[in-house]
């Protein structure tokens, strides 16, 4: 018996598969976009241990008025 690709069943299946494929592609794109946003807006941290590192934050505008004790003058 020959396959009938134009059978209603095949059309329905194709539509269903196409729908699932597009949804999955959309989901991947969405997770990627969300990841980019989260990384851009995240706390300053380094990739290897995901620990917050205050030293990565932009430097303060003004330097301390007095040098810390023990600093060579």
């Amino acid at each position: 018996m020959a396959l009938q690709p134009t059978h209603d069943l095949h059309k329905r299946r194709f539509g269903r598969n196409l729908g699932v494929a597009l949804l999955l592609a959309g989901f991947v794109a969405l997770v990627f976009a969300l990841t980019v946003v989260k990384v851009q807006r995240g706390d300053p941290m380094q990739g290897y241990d995901h620990t917050v590192r205050p030293e990565l934050a932009p430097a303060a505008d003004t330097a301390p008025e007095t040098a810390p004790e023990g600093t060579p003058q």
Binding site: M1, Q4, H7, L9, R13, R16, V20
Partner: peptide
Amino acid sequence: MSDIGSYERSATGPGDGSFGDYV
């Protein structure tokens, strides 16, 4: 090919819903 034969008999059988049915 036997399954195609059964589809011929029942083109709108259970579990063959369209994408719209799932929506």
